[in-house]
């Protein structure tokens, strides 16, 4: 077990009334697994990610990483955001080198490793471009390369493809799976898309909103080699997608009624 969330409740500061953002949430993340957190908006799934990363502290309960309490962000837990969060004043290569600079590596070594990461995400040609010159898909690849360069054990992804158009999203989903198989990082992937959760992960944690609670754990036993066109016609996939969809829509309606 790499990380665990144990009886966590989270409230915004000063918000003592009303349902908490997260209520008594518990689950484990195993090393090397690809787990998705799925739910309607407002269910606290991003908050869960930020707690795992150490950016926020729980109101109640504990977050553990390799058995130790999580108090602050760390290189061990990398994060990728929906808005890419690239440093506009740095080129793609320099963005990827950021974490390596913080490690104190010297220039040649940094360039070598950063170059390798850019190649991993398929962006070797864009190394000297500024974010302004890159498309959304390319920016997100840089962001992923940047996080991976710091060699985290856990990669947290907060709806990373939500701001991209459908075709780019499909491409990057396949890229992500390829990178995961190649690097065997542990990935926790937040999304509101049922199809994305089913396609990418091995296990889906389905959440409800207001308060944010875990509704169900759903395994995705579809093997590692997933080919999109085949999978879309696969009965098991269709069934899983349906089941997850029913759960999410039910919880969305419930939270709207509340």
């Amino acid at each position: 077990m790499l990380a665990s969330i144990d009886g966590v409740t989270y409230r915004y500061e000063g918000a003592d009334a009303g349902p908490p953002v997260l209520q008594n949430v518990s689950f484990d993340v195993s090393e090397g697994e690809f787990v998705a957190i799925l739910g309607p908006s407002g269910c606290g799934k991003s908050t869960l990610l930020y707690l795992l990363g150490g950016f926020l502290q729980p109101t109640m309960g504990a977050i553990r990483y390799r058995g130790e309490g999580v108090r602050a962000p760390s290189r061990e837990r990398g994060i990728v955001f929906q808005d890419f969060a690239l440093f506009d004043w740095r080129t793609a290569m320099q963005n990827v080198e950021f974490g390596l600079e913080c490690l104190g590596l010297e220039a040649n070594e940094r360039r070598r490793r950063a170059g390798a990461m850019l190649e991993l995400v398929g962006l070797s040609g864009a190394a000297d471009k500024f974010p302004r010159q890159l498309s959304g898909g390319m920016k997100q690849r840089v962001a992923i390369a940047r996080s991976l360069a710091a060699e985290p054990a856990l990669l947290l992804m907060d709806e990373p493809f939500a701001a991209l158009d459908a075709l780019t999203r499909d491409t990057l989903q396949d890229e992500l799976r390829r990178i995961w198989i190649a690097t065997r990082k542990t990935i926790v992937f937040v999304t509101h898309s049922v199809e994305e959760a089913a396609y990418l992960s091995q296990r889906v944690i389905v959440m409800t909103a207001r308060p944010g609670e875990i509704q169900a754990f759903v395994d995705i036993p579809l093997g590692e080699a997933r080919e999109r066109d085949t999978l879309l016609k696969d009965e098991r996939f269709i069934d899983l997608r349906h089941r997850l969809g029913v759960m999410v829509r039910r919880s969305a309606r419930a939270s709207e009624a509340a």
Binding site: S74, R77, A85, C102
Partner: peptide
Amino acid sequence: WSAQSLGAG
């Protein structure tokens, strides 16, 4: 947060 998770003090 990105900078922090990349190890920036």
